Computed example of a mutant assay.
Amino acid sequence: MKVARKPFTVDAFNKNADVDLPEITRHLAQSADKVDRQARFPSDNFAYLHRLGLLSLTIPASLGGQAADLNTVRQVISAVAKGEASTALILLMHYLQHQQLHHSSKWPHRLSARVAQDALQSGALINALRVEPALGSPSRGGLPTTTAYRTTKGWRLSGEKIYSTGSHGLTWMNVWARSDDKTPSVGFWLVPAHAPGVEIIDEWDHLGMRASSSHRVIFHDVELPLDHAVDSAPQAIANKKAAESEAVKWMHVLLGSLYDGVAQAANDWFKRWLLTRTPSNLGAPLASLERFQEITGRIDTLLLSNKVLLDAAANNDVPHHQLAQIKQITTSQSIRAVEHIVKAAGNPALSGSHPLQRHYRDVLCGRIHTPQDDTVFKAAGQAALNVTGATS
Score class of each variant (00 low, 15 high):
Phe8Pro: 00
Val10Phe: 08
Asp11Thr: 10
Lys15Trp: 04
Ala17Asn: 11
Val19Met: 01
Arg26Ala: 13
Ala29Tyr: 12
Ser31Gln: 06
Ala32Lys: 01
Arg40Cys: 00
Pro42Met: 08
Ser43Ile: 14
Asp44Ala: 13
Asn45Arg: 02
Arg51Gly: 10
Gly53Gln: 04
Leu55Asp: 11
Ile59Asn: 09
Ala61Arg: 14
Leu63Cys: 07
Leu63Asn: 08
Leu63Ser: 14
Gln66Tyr: 07
Ala67Gly: 14
Val76Thr: 09
Lys82Leu: 03
Ala85Thr: 13
Ala85Val: 07
Leu89Gln: 04
Leu96Gln: 15
Lys106His: 11
His109Asp: 14
Ser122Asp: 12
Leu125Ser: 08
Leu125Arg: 14
Leu125His: 05
Ile126Ala: 12
Asn127Arg: 07
Glu132Leu: 09
Arg140Trp: 00
Thr146Asn: 08
Trp155Ser: 09
Gly169Tyr: 04
Asn174Thr: 01
Ala177Lys: 05
Gly187Asp: 09
Phe188Arg: 10
His194Trp: 00
His194Arg: 09
Glu199His: 12
Trp204Cys: 05
Trp204Gly: 05
Asp205Met: 08
Leu207Lys: 08
Ser214Glu: 02
Ile218Ala: 11
His220Met: 05
Asp221Lys: 14
Pro225Gly: 06
Asp231Trp: 08
Lys241Thr: 13
Ala243Met: 14
Glu244Trp: 01
Ser245His: 10
Ser245Asp: 15
Lys249Gly: 10
Met251Glu: 12
Leu258Arg: 04
Lys271Ala: 12
Arg272Asn: 15
Leu274Asn: 03
Asn281Glu: 14
Ala284Ser: 04
Leu286Glu: 00
Leu289Gln: 13
Glu294Leu: 10
Asp300Cys: 02
Thr301Asp: 15
Ala314Asn: 06
Asp317Met: 13
Asp317Ile: 00
Pro319Gln: 08
Leu323Pro: 11
Lys327His: 14
Thr330Arg: 13
Ser334Arg: 11
Val338Lys: 08
Glu339Asp: 15
Lys343Val: 11
Asn347Glu: 12
Ala349Trp: 12
Gly352Phe: 07
Leu356Tyr: 02
His359Ser: 09
Cys365Leu: 15
Gly366Pro: 05
Gly366Arg: 05
Arg367His: 12
Gln372Asn: 06
Lys378Gly: 04
Lys378Pro: 02
Lys378Ile: 14
Gln382Gly: 10
